[in-house]
Write a protein that binds this DNA or RNA. Structure first.
Lengths: 162, 162
DNA sequence: TGTGAAACGTTATATTATTGCAATCAGTGC
DNA sequence: GCACTGATTGCAATAATATAACGTTTCACA
């Protein structure tokens, strides 16, 4: 099992999250002969400012803080598409929002735990769960390409308060 | 395991699907002391015309066929919200579209198998999978309220052709 | 038959996302 | 250095999805 729930839901040194994400991004861009342009990096930094999914228009509004100037929607969407394509960012479909991937390139359950209260969202991967899911899908005669699991509820921190 | 993948992906007597869905809808409305108004029934029938998720604006465009007149977006969204609330219809978040639930009120994995090729979408429920998922979520310290699993790939019929 | 809540009609608008085309930039081979 | 090529970005417009606000109608129930 792989998970970033500790970091997502509790106080931690978030600069390490950001640093790791950027290092990984540079690494994967180099491997794919793709360019991490200033716009793309600014969008990635902005998405990584928290462990909460961020909407495209929120990125659009806040990007000047990182980039020093404003841009148009297609520019933001293109950057997001690029980051999603490289596996650096996930789209959280139920929220129409985007979240940094804490372990790009590694095992992917694409399982998200979205806190209803504080919005913090962790990503979890689990081999046993993937196996159970693959088996269920196979029994239905379906050929599995991609998956996405979105769970809503209360994170440990918010559950404790209630 | 509960599944409608046979019906969703293969030739079948679809009138039985529609009939069952409507009967179930009437039953659940009565139980909830809610009204299955002409608009709500027309939207439900329209959604049940196929096993493919239908967008809200497609419903809006096609509703006159069932209702004899046109309506505005809020009317369609209100009907959809009502049907979702009662568990008769699911929202497929990755497609921004809506699909009839083949077994409302019964066990819910909220697991959807969406064919990339033909669009047909089956719903599957599986106790073992739910257990594995619950365990994974619990291990992350998360308190589970709702879940939604969306799988894309090839349905048996389309896989056979390719 | 009156009454209150639910449902619906209507207008306007918010939010999310894409299209199409022109201009610019980064790397490559010469 | 210079021309070439494909990737990236700028820009204007618009498409697609969803909701807000408020008044009117309908209907179950008393």
């Amino acid at each position: 099992m792989i998970s970033n729930s500790r970091a997502a839901y509790h106080l931690h040194d978030h600069r390490r999250c950001v640093g790791a994400a950027l290092a990984e991004a540079r690494h994967r861009c180099a491997a794919a002969r793709a360019r991490l342009t200033p716009i793309r990096e600014a969008v990635l930094r902005l998405i990584w400012e928290s462990h909460r999914p961020v909407g495209a228009y929120q990125i659009l509004r806040e990007l000047p803080r990182h980039l020093g100037r404003s841009v148009q929607p297609p520019t933001v969407y293109r950057a997001i598409d690029f980051l999603v394509e490289l596996g650096l960012v996930h789209r959280i479909a139920t929220l129409n929002a985007y979240l940094g991937c804490p372990f790009p390139g590694r095992e992917h359950s694409e399982l998200f735990l979205i806190c209803n209260q504080c919005g913090a969202t962790a990503e979890v991967g689990d081999e046993a769960l993937n196996a159970a899911l693959a088996e269920t899908v196979r029994k239905a005669g379906f050929r599995h390409h991609s998956q996405r699991i979105e769970i809503t509820g209360l994170c440990p921190a918010c559950a404790e308060q209630s």
